[in-house]
Amino acid sequence: MAISLHHIVIDAHDLPGLARFWADVPGWEILSEREREVVVGTEPGAPIGICFMPVTEVKAVKNRLHLDLTPGAGPGEREAEIERILALGARRVDVGQTGDESWTVPADPEGNEFRVVRAERTLIG
């Protein structure tokens, strides 16, 4: 028997707002919007999406899981994407970086950290 990843689930206070942010970052769309669940993805038949579920508690510590995003490989694309993501409502955060990393750490509008990494050719490169 095989099992597949279906959704990455993110807890949220403002489901529609956070879903719009995460749909805009990779250029996805909102696929389903219900009172207690919003799903974004590339298209309705996509194998994986991001699902937003409501919580009442405030995020208090660094994420135990984060997303790595890879921009295009052209000159300046990484910095341009970081600036675009910041304009969408993210902010830069410090999680102990030294400044020598090949990635930058922003947080989404609700404080969930993620990384914008250098362009990779493979998942293990």
Rank of each mutant, 00 (worst) to 15 (best):
A90C: 07
D100F: 11
E81C: 15
L86H: 01
I85T: 04
V105A: 10
A87T: 09
A87D: 14
V116I: 15
F114I: 08
L88R: 01
V95M: 13
E81Y: 11
S102G: 13
G99A: 12
E81P: 02
R92Q: 13
L88S: 08
V117W: 12
D100T: 15
A119F: 14
R115Y: 11
R118Y: 12
A80Q: 13
L86S: 06
G96T: 06
E110S: 05
R91E: 12
V95H: 13
P109E: 06
G96W: 00
D94M: 06
S102H: 12
G99Y: 11
W103Q: 05
N112S: 07
V117Y: 08
E101C: 08
A80R: 11
R91Q: 14
E83T: 10
A90L: 00
G89R: 04
T98I: 07
A80D: 10
E101M: 01
D108T: 05
V93M: 09
I82V: 15
E81D: 15
E81M: 14
D94K: 05
A87G: 11
A80I: 00
D100P: 06
T98M: 11
D108V: 02
E110L: 03
T104A: 15
A119N: 13
G111T: 01
R84P: 02
W103H: 08
G111I: 06
Q97K: 10
P109W: 06
I85F: 01
